[in-house]
């Protein structure tokens, strides 16, 4: 009688199985990142801004990427993302490739460019979701692709930021290869 009344389909069987991955903390599988306080990220940002004002773009970029706060909370990560994007925007197009190849050839350079790639993708995600007029600005097209409309109405700055990120993306792939994209998709340490 009871078995008829019980709605078996709604039972979460995974929760009852001790061997189920649902009862397993997946974060223990990944390398743990030490937690970083938001205040520390802010202090770091100030230091990097200092370098930027002094005209040391490469040092600022390298510094910002070496200290990527994987263990920070959402707010801390956002601050750091803003810093990295600011650096990327202040470097001239003609200087991108020389800076990138110098970083790539230095010790641990491949990993630094992978981190940069993460910030480029993160920046693109941010730009497409934070357009001033909100989600309404993205209209699905008959082609199946979404397009950001109203570029001229305040979407201009985001469009510009996107074009900066796209040219950085091109330059990073030229130097670090498609492998860097594969690593951004694979890496469990997100920025």
């Amino acid at each position: 009688m009871t078995s008829v009344q019980q709605n078996w389909r709604t039972i979460n069987v995974d929760a009852l199985d001790p061997d189920s991955p649902a009862n397993f903390d997946l974060s223990t599988l990944t390398p743990s990142a030490p937690s970083v306080a938001t205040a520390d990220v802010q202090a770091l940002t100030a230091q990097i801004r200092q370098l930027l004002r002094g005209g040391d773009f490469e040092g600022a970029l390298r510094g910002a990427l070496d200290t990527a706060p994987y263990g920070a909370d959402g707010r801390g990560k956002e601050i750091h993302l803003a810093t990295v994007i600011e650096i990327l925007q202040s470097i001239r197009q003609s200087e991108m490739s020389p800076i990138l190849s110098r970083i790539y050839q230095s010790e641990g350079g491949s990993e630094v460019l992978d981190t940069l790639m993460k910030y480029i993708y993160r920046g693109m995600a941010l730009n497409s979701s934070h357009t001033p007029s909100g989600p309404k600005a993205i209209s699905p097209q008959p082609t199946g692709f979404s397009q950001i409309s109203h570029r001229s109405l305040g979407g201009d700055t985001s469009g510009q930021a996107m074009s900066v990120l796209l040219s950085w993306h091109e330059k990073v792939v030229e130097i670090a290869g498609p492998g860097s994209i594969a690593r951004v998709m694979t890496d469990r340490r997100t920025v």
């Binding site: 599988l29 390398p31 690593r183 694979t186 890496d187 469990r188 340490r189």
Partner: peptide
């Protein structure tokens, strides 16, 4: 053993 990115 686990590598840095913990990928498949």
């Amino acid at each position: 053993y686990l590598n840095n990115t913990a990928g498949w």
